[in-house]
Design a protein around this nucleic acid. Structure first.
Lengths: 195, 195
DNA sequence: TTCTTTATTGACTCGTCAATCAACAATAAA
DNA sequence: TTTATTGTTGATTGACGAGTCAATAAAGAA
């Protein structure tokens, strides 16, 4: 069997298995052995290709974020104006790439890891910055100077609802969360100097 | 030393030590031995009084939530009208009882635990319900039928900003988060039928 | 063919940690 | 004093899991 060029295949399989395993056990206590078994190889091989558990997990999150980023970019291409781009960003956050139970569990895990692992923290801050700047860029022409705070709020709301939905045992589809954020966007766009 | 009536003292000490230890290590990998040592006793005694690690941690979270609840109730007493009560609820979420780094770390830990532990899930849903109903009750007279969604949004925003602040390494004071949520509240109260 | 490189694993090491237990100490009850 | 009852711990057990390593196998290079 040992053909050459197995490395990318194995890595991809491990990344996929990592997300799947986290989703299945519903917790962070996934062992390298479990992941490797699910990916059809020995745990030794997983270590061989990735070096360690955290690096396996980081690769999985990097992949998740890449897919998510692609989804956002794709949606943005379709949207002609700032407002519909904002709606697209919001929808993408709760879109199929991000809102599957396994992925939500992975994000939770990732939050925890980011408190101790430098690389995870960097990766997380990249996600935060990207979301914020995407929102900011499209809010600016609509609400001008209030854009910064509005972006902060919308980003917080997206993360918060994502978390709440993810933590409620019964897996929901995210439709209601999207609706809530979209209404919030309307409020931001409409309100110019309340109270 | 063995005077009678040690139990409540020991329990309290362990609860306090648990939060402190989580805050110090900045992660979830707190061992019973660490907690017990910090509380000035052997790990065997910790098991003796609590039965297990998860129960120690649950007791700590119950305590945290009790203190938080008291803070909210206290603030509500001072507030004469629904709007100021809403402001009080928002402020309390980022108040001193809740927003210390140790407590934030504990909450993160708790989120994770809630995915596998039944009791933790129940406790978390109690928190969720309480926040939602506190907001709802005071929003109803101000925005009528839109109260439900507004409460959902504000709750999500509070949790989301709490999470974001908690994850950013540099401990902030929550002032800006409070300001953001308060502005959101203004938007909710002002906006009646946007777009 | 022989050598080197890549792929692959089973078995093993080493640590950690939750949980248990046997034993001891001190106080209160008899 | 004897006898519970409560408090307390050091030592130990048992399990689990990350990471290592020696050994094997295939395939290409020489």
């Amino acid at each position: 069997m040992p053909k050459l060029g197995m490395e990318p295949i194995r890595r991809a399989a491990l990344v996929k298995a990592t997300i799947a395993q986290i989703g299945e056990t519903g917790s962070l206590d996934v062992t390298v052995a479990q992941i490797a078994k699910r990916a059809g190889m020995s745990s030794a091989l997983a270590h061989h290709y990735f070096g360690g558990k955290e690096q396996i997990f980081l690769a999985a999150m990097r992949h998740t974020m890449t897919v998510y980023g692609a989804e956002v970019r794709g949606a943005l291409l379709m949207a002609p104006d700032p407002e519909s781009r904002l709606q697209a960003i919001i929808r993408a956050g709760f879109g199929p790439a991000n809102f599957r139970p396994e992925v939500i569990a992975a994000w939770l895990n990732f939050y925890v890891l980011a408190r101790t692992n430098k690389d995870a923290a960097r990766l997380l801050s990249i996600y935060h910055a990207r979301l914020r700047s995407n929102l900011l860029f499209n809010l600016r022409p609509l609400v001008g100077p209030r854009a910064r705070e509005a972006a902060e709020r919308l980003a917080g709301l997206i993360d918060g609802l994502y978390l709440r939905e993810g933590l409620s045992a019964d897996a929901r589809d995210g439709k209601s969360a999207v609706a809530l954020v979209l209404q919030s966007l309307d409020l931001e766009l409409a309100g110019q100097g309340a109270t």
